[in-house]
């Protein structure tokens, strides 16, 4: 009985952790390239979700619709970088952060205006089957969604470590000045990172929204991804999987065993409490870059 509960908590936690990881990886890809903390990452997820649904509505093939959304989101990322962040090159990190906060408000407002506040059903693109594992039912869409996120994050981690373009972007993450002195175009890397982030938002939307009822306030999910990104470290890509797992499962456990006594508060507070502890003990996160000091 306990085993079954534990398994259920674990599975629910992993599915939630995957979406946190997917949003977190969008944060870290952008942060690495330009030291910009893009607080509007959740809004990108929301726009990708509704753009997908709008295209589904035209009756086109679902996968074609997703592909088109991914392309459009990549272009949107490029556009945001070009119009909003490039003019701010050389400004303080705080100015850049405030710019993304402005972006959040704009996109949020636009989302409400264009898509309305009514919850709508996102089609089951990842299947509707329920599989049984040790006596409990697992939704096919959750398994496939989680797998999609894991594959995406692993692929990105590989890209940044093993391909030339990825290494250029990692060099930009280390130091703009060194990268420039080696002939690596910093602006190109930053633009590319926004495009990647837009595409990742599309993948996250497909992985998580399938079969759910959605409204523009799904963007708030990004706030739970914030502790994930700080836990795993701002510069890591692959590390967000572990961060997502810890926060997702921890939250799911808090929901099962603590929420009955705290009127649902524990699971809401858990990610942020964890984030504070992490910031005190290991400010750079589990896999973040600690500056090497050598004399």
């Amino acid at each position: 009985m306990l085993m079954e509960t534990l398994l259920r908590v674990l599975i629910g936690g992993i599915a939630n952790g995957a979406i946190y990881a997917a949003v977190a990886v969008g944060f870290s890809v952008i942060y690495r390239s330009g030291r910009v903390f893009n607080i509007a990452q959740g809004e990108l997820l929301m726009i990708a979700t509704f753009m997908c649904m709008a295209l589904f509505g035209t009756g086109m093939n679902h996968w074609l619709a997703i592909l088109l959304t991914a392309i459009a989101m990549g272009l949107l990322g490029l556009l945001i970088e070009r119009l909003m962040l490039r003019p701010l090159v050389g400004q303080s990190e705080m100015a850049l952060f405030m710019a993304t906060l402005g972006l959040l408000l704009i996109l949020n407002g636009l989302g409400t205006i264009v898509f309305g506040t009514e919850p709508r059903l996102f089609p089951d693109v990842l299947g509707t089957e329920r599989w049984r594992l040790g006596g409990i039912a697992i939704k096919e869409s959750n398994v496939l969604g989680t797998a999609l996120v894991v594959v995406t994050v692993v692929a990105l981690a590989w890209f940044f470590r093993s391909t030339r373009t990825g290494l250029f972007m990692t060099a930009v993450a280390e130091s703009h000045q060194i990268a420039r002195s080696l002939g690596v175009s910093v602006t190109r890397s930053i633009g590319l990172s926004w495009a990647i982030s837009g595409v990742v938002a599309t993948i996250a939307a497909v992985a998580f929204m399938s079969g759910r009822s959605v409204s523009p306030d799904i963007a708030t999910i990004a706030f739970v991804a914030l502790p994930v990104v700080l836990l795993s470290g701002l510069e890591t890509v692959g590390g967000v999987l572990l961060g997502g797992l810890i926060v997702g499962v921890g939250q799911s456990m808090a929901a099962r065993w603590l929420d009955p006594y705290t009127e649902g508060g524990a699971s809401l507070i858990f990610p942020f409490a964890l984030m504070m502890v992490i910031l005190i003990i290991k400010p750079q996160g589990l896999f973040g870059w600690k500056r090497v000091e050598r004399i």
Partner: peptide, 30 residues
């Protein structure tokens, strides 16, 4: 840099979180 003029900056500015070989590969950008 693409024209063939490269500066090595003062103070051993390695890309410290990257391996030796990754440092070298990045520099093949031009």
């Amino acid at each position: 840099v693409r024209r063939g003029l490269v500066q090595v900056m003062e103070g051993r500015r390695v890309l410290e979180h990257m391996s030796v070989e990754q440092n070298l590969i990045v520099a093949s950008a031009p």
